[in-house]
Each structure stands twice: as C-alpha cells, then as structure tokens.
C-alpha cells in the first residue's frame, strides 16, 4: 500500500465577482438589477392591520367599486371626511363613503339610486376599517 504525502494547502482569498465567470458576455443589466414589482408593496402598507373583503352590489359604482371587486381594508388608517369605509350599521356590514360635516355624520352611497344613511344618536355605528384601494379582475 502506498501512502501519499500529506499535501500542504494554503488558503487563498479569491476575489468575489458580481458576475459568474462562465463563458458568454456578462449581462449589461447586471449593475442595474432590481427586485421585480411586488403587488403586496403596492396594496398592503401594514400587513398586521390589512384585510380583504369582496364588494357586493352596485351602491359604490361611482367610487369605482363594482360588484365582485376585492377591497383592501386597512384598520390602522384614520377615517376622515371622504374616506371609503367598511362600517357596521345596526349590526350589518356596509361599504360606503364617510361624510362628516358641521357635526353631522352620514354614509353616502356612490350611486344616486341609493339614499344617504344618516348616523344619529340612535344608530349603532362602528367603523370597521378604511378602504384605501380596490382591485378589479377584468377576466376570471
């Protein structure tokens, strides 16, 4: 049996290349690479407080929200006059535009076929979340 001599090895620092050294030309885009577009980044600012609901009916078509659209609901956003909101009115969920003016509060549908919903002292009213964005699927 033949025993090989133990070979002494050295550690050589190899410079790290940004591009692989394999054959072919390095991509001219190499230096300018970016992450692909992230729809979460576009639609969800605060994941812990963001929910999704589906719009039903045509009461908000004037705001561009159609039947079957997916609405982003962010519970961390502060509702202001003009916000599109999901609210609980007398125990029922509804999606309308919030109006607050001169001490008066009402929910405004974006469709003239529907009446305003006045919020008075007798109304059980709670804002569930603010809808900052909505998504429409044009084909299934």
């Amino acid at each position: 049996m033949r025993v090989h001599d133990v070979e002494k090895r050295t550690n050589l620092a190899v410079p790290l290349m940004a591009a692989p050294v394999a054959a072919g030309f390095p991509s001219p885009a190499e230096e300018h690479e970016d992450r692909p577009l992230d729809f979460n980044e576009l639609l969800v600012k605060n994941p812990a407080s963001t929910f999704a609901v589906k719009a039903q009916g045509d009461s908000m078509v004037g705001a561009g929200i159609h039947d079957g659209d997916i609405c982003v609901v962010d519970r961390s956003l502060k509702p202001v006059d003009g916000s599109v909101i999901v609210a609980l009115v007398n125990g029922e969920f509804t999606m309308k535009r919030l109006r607050m003016k001169a001490g008066r509060v009402w929910l405004k549908p974006e469709n003239s076929n529907y009446p305003d919903i006045p919020i008075t002292e007798g109304t059980e009213f709670e804002i569930w979340g603010v809808i900052p964005k909505s998504v429409r699927m044009h084909t299934a």
């Binding site: 999704a52 609901v53 589906k54 719009a55 039903q56 969920f93 999606m95």
Partner: peptide
Amino acid sequence: RYTTRWQDLLHVA
C-alpha cells in the same frame, strides 16, 4: 376562512 382563502372573503354591500 375570511383571512386565508380568496373564496371565503367577507361580502360587503
């Protein structure tokens, strides 16, 4: 499963 399935989303009118 309101928060984990697209087909289970809450419907709001």
